[in-house]
Design a protein around this nucleic acid. Sequence first.
DNA 1: TCAAAAGTGTTGCATCTACACCCATGT
DNA 2: ACATGGGTGTAGATGCAACACTTTTGA
Lengths: 253, 253
Amino acid sequence: MVGGTLRSSAEVKVPETRSEEIRVAGSTVILTLRPSGDAAPRLAIPLVHRTREPFADRWALPGGWIAADESPVDTAARTLAETTGLAPSYLEQLYAFGAVDRSPTRVISIVYWALLRQDDVIAQSAAHVAAGRAPENVEWFDVDALPALAFDHADIIEYALWRLRNKVGYSRVAHGFLPSEFTLSDLREAYEAILGRHLDPANFRRQVEAAGNLIPTDRFRTGSHRPARLYRDNTDVELAARGPLSPAETSIR
Amino acid sequence: MVGGTLRSSAEVKVPETRSEEIRVAGSTVILTLRPSGDAAPRLAIPLVHRTREPFADRWALPGGWIAADESPVDTAARTLAETTGLAPSYLEQLYAFGAVDRSPTRVISIVYWALLRQDDVIAQSAAHVAAGRAPENVEWFDVDALPALAFDHADIIEYALWRLRNKVGYSRVAHGFLPSEFTLSDLREAYEAILGRHLDPANFRRQVEAAGNLIPTDRFRTGSHRPARLYRDNTDVELAARGPLSPAETSIR
DNA sequence: TCAAAAGTGTTGCATCTACACCCATGT
DNA sequence: ACATGGGTGTAGATGCAACACTTTTGA
């Protein structure tokens, strides 16, 4: 804890320096759910391979400098698009990291976290294969098999995962991973991948039905065993309450 | 919601501008509980009267530029001390506000929120009266009677209050307002002031007792009616879980 | 007909809420 | 003695976890 009383404010020295030497970057922890064969899907993150110092040969979060005429959230959305070619289903500010020693030069990073729909990611990587070219130096990693990371990016990813796991408990963020129609098993598997534990299908069903955020369709997914009803999101309800923050802060115009 | 697929990343233009034109400020929403006569205590915030453009004659959050060798949290703690002469019992990053048009010049503000113990505030203002001088241009306002505010500071305060009200439900932040020994009524009044509604004393007692964060003392507050037992905080437990964020991010070295 | 997932029912436990009630003190 | 806040007891409602059970399909 912190606490206590200080000397009178008159004695406190005010630094003369202004902050022009500080550069401001935007980075994003981009998350999706990757189907892994017929096993449970797993959380995955795209990282950028660094070819220059500092931290040459290590992997970093996608990001870039915040342009003079650009809001931080726009930098996040822009660099996310440059890296993946996609627009996120969810985008939220994570934290502003600004410790003096977090980089050899003074950089404050305003970090966002984003969710991508798994069908978008699959379609995009198929398009890259078809076109014969994919973004250079970008690779996807399972969150529990990350490579050596640059700067404080390992801590940042850990914090983003903590926030995701927290938020999934009291919001609908998990829906951000799913296509427009999905079964309750799809949704439950998303929750299980995020939380890392098994959920009872019967109780899960009742909980999401009681929440009233799902619209049942007349369609079913067949294939094996008893067909499962497909549901749509009730798009009247936000994926997560943002409180009184301006809508511009978390969505894209 | 956001969603959708974009053009290939090869077509996205990268701005040439770097971020040297952006200045970075730190501001803090400082909250305390002010006893208002014998009525219920109320949430209050210190604000700084602006004497220069932009927004001359309006009121602003305490803050300043982040120095080149200073972490954002240190800027928050420093400007908080300059404004109030006190150290906070709780300090947490609120949000980085960076919309392009939020200030006539380009400024990104990393905003913190802090709690002050009400006994610290009372002692400090008594000291100011005794010394015959108090910080210039600083005045305390009830949160539901705020003056005309500069920049986007009204929105920022609204967001800070939303965060406080949320956090009080799943953490012990309300303890940050109280002295080291307090009665359960003191604590309940803090919760009531934050949430803006009455809480059942009997149920409140059982809840905080069950949480196990309070240590009963042998002392009682006498004065009127039946004496009330005094409690201390269990300082082994943090006021609020910060997740995997470094301890440096929310406490003062 | 069997395996396995979809979907329903039921029971027990913990927690919350409302409110009745007793306790201890200053006036 | 009595008003008032401190503190305890208790019954009903609600929510959740565990798990038995039925349904529907593909193989």
